[in-house]
Amino acid sequence: MLLEIKDLHCSVEGKEILKGVNLAVREGEVHAIMGPNGSGKSTLASVLAGNPRYEVTRGEVLYDGADLLEMSIEDRARAGIFLGFQYPVEIPGVSMANFMRLAVNERRAGRGEEPLSPAEFLKLMRDKSAVVELDAKLMNRAVNEGFSGGEKKKNEIFQMAMLDPRLAILDETDSGLDIDALRVVATGVNKLRRPDNATIVITHYQRLLDYIVPDFVHVLYKGRIIHTGDRTLALKLESEGYDWLIGDIQ
């Protein structure tokens, strides 16, 4: 088991957002998490990445058998957890290339590997920016600064490709993307799928799941996973909405 979430509760500023989430993710799997606005999807992603804004009040999370909640943000990343941000952050004055060089070498150190030479790093950057059709010129620009919405999302998948995570959590990577950019992003994600890694895709819309085909679809509602199915669940949610599920709960 790569990830095991057991009865996870968490609060932000005293308000309980997650109220007992259970989820198990094996290597090779793709899980989609859907749900109405405010159900806790992005909170779950943030908690797994270690965002200090969120306080875990109960439950446990095992990552590759280790207590994830005890690990620092960076140790989680070095151990292969990647969060694709819904709103990628701009970092003025810090070039993409410089940022990625540090990040890649931390990730490599996490796997017990030597840092890349400058030439190896440049080659890796060229190869991976091609995966998401990201203009290589952006590597000389400041992180996400002046990037278009589509470029920011492609940049998230580019970074994912660079860091080669074991567990990628993509938080609404499809939001704000036109159909071409969506296809590019999804193709990038699919190219990175392997039997030894896993992906959690958080999305509002079924259309992303046309491209990234999930093994499981979970519905998160009011801080709990209330229903789990296969990819056909996403289609049903698209046509019928959430009311039929929510009605069951209430």
Binding site: A49, G50, I73, E74, A77, V89, F99, Q159
Partner: peptide, 13 residues
């Protein structure tokens, strides 16, 4: 938020 972003990519604080 930028510090969190960078640490999420593996940089130390």
């Amino acid at each position: 938020s930028a510090l969190f972003y960078m640490r999420q990519r593996g940089l130390s604080e």
